[in-house]
Design a protein around this nucleic acid. Structure first.
Lengths: 144, 144
DNA sequence: TGATAATAATTGATATATCAACTATATTTG
DNA sequence: CAAATATAGTTGATATATCAATTATTATCA
């Protein structure tokens, strides 16, 4: 007996919101660039800012596990968005490098990603954003 | 060039929060009941409240597509949490029924789910909850 | 009524999620 | 230094996500 039905909880609202945003963003991305997912785009974006990230670190940044990241990066390598080479200083790691094609994807995606975020947050005030982040942070840290 | 890095956005915070909650909740559920996922538990909970739901309707309630729902329910049937029989009034549909085993799972899960929600929302005021839902709703509806 | 369209569910293909077991390399420590 | 540990990544197994195509049934409408 689960007295309060799941659809009435705030967790349901959180889930709904992020899924809706992902669908919306993915649709707009797919209209501009072929064959790239939001998560792959995020991997590229993180690597652009921090070229020395390991697979494990990227996985943590996009909330995935190492196994998923291995497979995602395999795909991105076969799609020529990334290259992978052994790091000679620590042979357990890989150097990941964004290819020219990957850079072009990032270039095209930039304005679209910005626009997605802007549209999704239309009518949300700066103050609300701060509240939102602070409440979410509270919940997340309760779940540790 | 994606100027604002994904980890700084509110979407990242939303994603992080829901994933953290799911992990937390799944862990507590797994400690009490073997071999059930959060989503399966939600399917049971929805069916308990609304026994006439179709697979399609349940899918919408838990934000999954029909294909995923078909496979999930197949599994739940082989795990004897549900039975599936043809609806004679509309032979495209199925009647889904919670088995005794499924009911026992719900029984055990009830207090755990309640406790999960309570712990996750510890220190979050009623007002904050209302704000949270209203901001999330705004974002979700921007993404339609 | 018969052709057409809509609906509920399934299936196939491919990607991703998750856990556990494993490999290879690097670090620690007794 | 050698043995034990830790770390980065891979692989296998199974479940789920997603899209498109398909089946079976029901509803529409010309």
């Amino acid at each position: 007996m689960i007295s309060s039905i799941p659809s009435k909880t705030v967790f349901h609202a959180i889930e709904r919101t992020i899924k809706q945003y992902r669908k919306f963003a993915q649709k707009n991305i797919s209209n501009a660039v072929n064959d790239i997912t939001i998560d792959q785009a995020m991997v590229l974006a993180f690597l652009e800012k921090h070229p020395d990230l390991t697979q494990k670190e990227i996985a943590a940044l996009v909330f995935k596990d190492n196994a998923s990241m291995t497979r995602m990066i395999n795909l991105m390598v076969t799609k020529k968005q990334l290259t992978r080479s052994i790091n000679t200083l620590n042979r357990r790691r890989f150097n990941l490098e964004i290819t020219l094609k990957g850079k072009q994807v990032l270039e095209k995606l930039g304005p679209i990603v910005q626009d997605n975020r802007k549209k999704a947050l239309d009518g949300v005030t700066e103050e609300e954003l701060i509240q939102l982040e602070s409440i979410l942070e509270k919940i997340a840290s309760n779940c540790k």
